[in-house]
Computed example of a mutant assay.
Amino acid sequence: MNSVPVAPVVVIVGFVAAITIGRWFLVDETLSDRLINRALAWDLVGLLVFICVGRLGRAHLALDLFTIFGALAVANVFGFARLLDGTDARTAARRQRTYDGIAAAAGCVVLVGMLAGREDWGPTVWSLTAVPTAWSGLLMTRACVRELRTAETPVKERLTYGALLFVAVYAVVSTVVSLVRTANGTRPDEPGLIWAIGTYATLVLLTALIAIPLWNALLARAELDRAGHCCRRLRPLWQALTDAVPEVVLAPPSSGSASLLYRMTVEIRDALVQLRPYAPDVEAHTDIREYARCIAWAVQAKAAGGPPVRASGRATAFALRDRADELRHLLDLAAEWPRARALAHASLEAPAR
């Protein structure tokens, strides 16, 4: 790798490090997420050690250390490839412990070889890791082709699977080429400029694909995605109704703007049902402005401690077909809410003036 300029390598490593750190904090919910994160972390540490030690002129030591961390990364990549290919997720954790154990054993062999002064053990173990690497590439290739052949796969997912397919095919081809070069006497850490650039370019593409869930998580945290935008529009209405009817408040969602949006719509719907007895003429209004005023009056009446004037009933006088229709209705109600609440306050204070 010494033939590759230092500056681009530093930029690439920094990019991978930023994505890795971000995913550890924001994208760590499923086993697939954790396997990707662990593979990225081991690969990043191995790459940093390899570059730093290699620049000190210790090429054999750099390769041995990279092999130790690389074996652990390959174990997690293989586990992810098995999941992507459709293996039973219920036994994935147990299988992963086996893969990790084999990788740790391979690392111990390299370490013993380092202590014993055997410089050939590291390259031998590195060559052996090519088997699960190529196998992982084949599994991911098969999974990507299967998804791309499915007519129901959305366009965005097709693009993602297409890019992942390229990475998987490159992994298989580069592994085979590397093994052939090693068998002909070329050191594994000297792949040549073309293959070195291809490896780094593929690493950038793979990291960019892995960064997509991180980008989505950041948008969700900032409420800049579609669900988050709806949450922001609903929040004033949701806050007023849940303050008036606190018993409808559910446990906070685990994470994600989509979960929060679902929770907010359920709580608003339940609060509207609870407030209906305080607005006896609510079903007489099919205009959203008048309906919002009725709900605002009901909130005022309940806050003032007044008794309900009729039995409870359904949440709205509007005919709603599905959840999407309900969300549009609640967004329309939220848009009218500030004006309706201001009118209710003004009517309440008018006699005092």
Rank of each mutant, 00 (worst) to 15 (best):
V77D: 03
L61Q: 09
L63C: 08
L48C: 11
L48D: 08
L48S: 15
R55S: 13
L48P: 06
A59F: 06
N76S: 03
L72G: 09
L72H: 12
C52Y: 15
V53G: 00
G70N: 00
L47Q: 04
I68L: 05
L48W: 09
L61G: 00
L65Q: 07
F66K: 10
V74G: 02
L56Q: 14
I68G: 01
L63M: 12
L56P: 14
V77I: 13
L63Y: 04
I51G: 12
V45E: 12
I68S: 04
I51F: 13
F50T: 12
A62V: 00
A59I: 12
A71K: 05
V49W: 08
A75C: 01
L65G: 01
G46N: 04
H60W: 06
F69D: 03
L61S: 06
R58H: 12
I68W: 02
G57R: 08
A59R: 15
V45G: 09
L65P: 01
F50V: 06
C52E: 15
V77W: 05
R58G: 02
D64R: 09
I68P: 02
D64Q: 11
V77T: 11
A73T: 06
A75N: 04
C52L: 13
V53A: 11
T67L: 03
A71V: 00
F69S: 08
G54V: 01
I68C: 10
C52V: 13
L72P: 03
V77M: 07
L63A: 07
T67G: 04
V77Y: 04
A59W: 07
L56K: 15
L56R: 15
I51K: 13
L56C: 14
F50N: 10
L61P: 02
A71G: 09
G54Q: 02
C52M: 13
T67H: 04
G54T: 05
R55F: 13
F50H: 10
A62D: 01
G70M: 07
L61T: 13
R58V: 02
F50Y: 11
A75H: 02
I68F: 01
A73V: 01
T67F: 00
V77L: 14
F69V: 01
V74E: 05
A59T: 10
A62I: 03
T67I: 01
F66M: 11
V53E: 07
A62E: 02
L65V: 01
D64Y: 05
A62M: 08
L48E: 12
L61E: 08
F66A: 11
V49Y: 05
A75K: 11
V53R: 09
H60C: 10
L72W: 13
L65A: 05
G57S: 07
A71F: 03
G54I: 01
N76H: 12
A71L: 09
R58I: 05
V45Y: 07
F50C: 09
